[in-house]
Design a protein around this nucleic acid. Sequence first.
DNA 1: CTGTTAGCGCCTTCAT
DNA 2: ATGAAGGCGCTAACAG
Lengths: 354, 354
Amino acid sequence: MTVTLADVAARAKVSPATVSRVLNGNYPVAASTRARVLRAVEELDYVLNGPASSLAAATSDLVGILVNDIADPFFGIMAGAVQSEIVGPGGRAGGERLAVVCNTGGSPERELTYLTLLQRQRAAAVVLTGGAVDSAEHNAAMTAKLRRLTDAGTRVVLCGRPPVPGTGAVALAFDNHGGGQRLTEHLASLGHRRIGYIAGPPSRTTTRERLAGHRAGLGLGEGEGPDELVVHGSYDRQAGYDATIELLRRDPGLTAVLAANDTVALGACAALRDQGLRIPQDVSVAGFDDLPFSVDAMPALTTVRLPLFEAGARAGRIAMGREEPPPGGIAKVRGELMVRGSTGAPRRDGAASR
Amino acid sequence: MTVTLADVAARAKVSPATVSRVLNGNYPVAASTRARVLRAVEELDYVLNGPASSLAAATSDLVGILVNDIADPFFGIMAGAVQSEIVGPGGRAGGERLAVVCNTGGSPERELTYLTLLQRQRAAAVVLTGGAVDSAEHNAAMTAKLRRLTDAGTRVVLCGRPPVPGTGAVALAFDNHGGGQRLTEHLASLGHRRIGYIAGPPSRTTTRERLAGHRAGLGLGEGEGPDELVVHGSYDRQAGYDATIELLRRDPGLTAVLAANDTVALGACAALRDQGLRIPQDVSVAGFDDLPFSVDAMPALTTVRLPLFEAGARAGRIAMGREEPPPGGIAKVRGELMVRGSTGAPRRDGAASR
DNA sequence: CTGTTAGCGCCTTCAT
DNA sequence: ATGAAGGCGCTAACAG
């Protein structure tokens, strides 16, 4: 029924071994033989059986990419960048590796499940993007799982998430703390004192680091000072909207709102407008990430630009062994403060009118 | 070295076949035996070898998703929706299917290459999203390739792209023509007569259909009437910016700009603003797709909402055989006109001041 | 319900 | 540079 390598061999009047060598190109084959084989492949419309060759060779050309939400450009950009770097040697058609993008939805269980599935596929490499859930239990499970993967020869790269010690996984961590701090210092230098903070889900490393940076920018130490101007929510627009209403309720005199990311910031902007407040005259707003749409918001969003594409591309190259991992297997990726129209000096009277 | 099914069998004192049956759950096994096997799996930390089982069973749990650009939410939303529907029966961990997301970058060659790669992996199903390149050559190649896939038992679903006759592929096509037409009629009813159109790449079906709808809305027949107010570009923000400048050059008296999609529309808005033109007082702008950020533009973008998530989810279900394909294997997915702040009546004087 | 027996299609030493 | 042969790890009939 389905044409196999043996069929090709028969038609080309060579042994299966020779066909295999031609197809994999990892071995010297006479030009004339190669041509004959290739022609037979054409004529028979032969397509290699991936599972069979993976089984025999004990390797696979699958590369896993874990993301929290593929519909979010934050992850889409990184996933696309990783993918652009995992093409096979020569970039030839057929020599390529396939990216398996796994949508975890931010769930630790699904994250682990997908890693098992990738392990089952004997993935050549795995790239985990974005923040991690930071609980002792999940950390332990992840450590075990990642170690097993690296032990089995799968290269593991963390892109935009903190290192997992003792696993052999390379980490390109975003400087969320520094970014959060710079953002807050920017607002403070403008004269803001009552700054609301819309944080992401409490358990995520990204949330914690950005919030810690914010608090550091405020001059607060660990666990010090009041939290009444911090509201947690998910990383979406609606959460930004709701949190802003809540912050305004807690302190109508707010002069600035710092959001967990740009998407949340857009929700915050919408809420402020619906409350009749002007940006930035009445309330300044800032986001994080600098996604493509952020510059098109009105006014354009002040934010911290994270080099998502570059980081993803680097992760992809490291995963493919085409670039040296950073010393110690850990690199910190800095963000750049982008000051735009959505932040300005606070109103003189200090109280936003509703 | 690596633990195999036989090792588990030995430890559980059963035959390999029994272990396989427990793991696949497709066969009656005594509860006590199952428990014993499961314990052995735990103790040995055994992970099934995917390639081996795919080879033996002649099936795989990989599902391909082809997208033009995974960083674009238009595709990200569909990909995420497909992925949410391809979980295995019971939704159990391990019973899942893996989504292989392939970024074609809009290149016909890469599209074909990825299909071959998926064919090689013996993918259970393939979903192709977004517009296709519409050339005789590529159509022929795609027809051949898709037929081969469906012949091999791979379910193929086209999501947001026109049918490919004679292939057994199910198509959920977006009503781009109708959307384009309604958008233009909306502008016309507002009193606009000089409408610029920023089209996507000329060869894509999406571009052609939307543009044809626009021309129909203008009351023009096929190939009839002047094209001086149509500019082609890629589907990105910069293209929208550049095209708008060009349109303004061609006709400074323009009162409206229709963009190929929302992203392009944002670029158009930026260009208009940079030219000192107000939206919609001087020039109305409309997009297409209704991506999440469109409602946050200022003013909010008038556009055509495409049910991307719903369509992707349906495509996923059909691909998994969990939903009947539409009659004839073809369904048209309609868009909904969303009238928002970016469109309004044209200026009385009819000429935009620069 | 469980064990036995053959392959699935390819890669890879080992020869030649 | 090419051929021969064994096995990668698992599943799918068949028996029992």
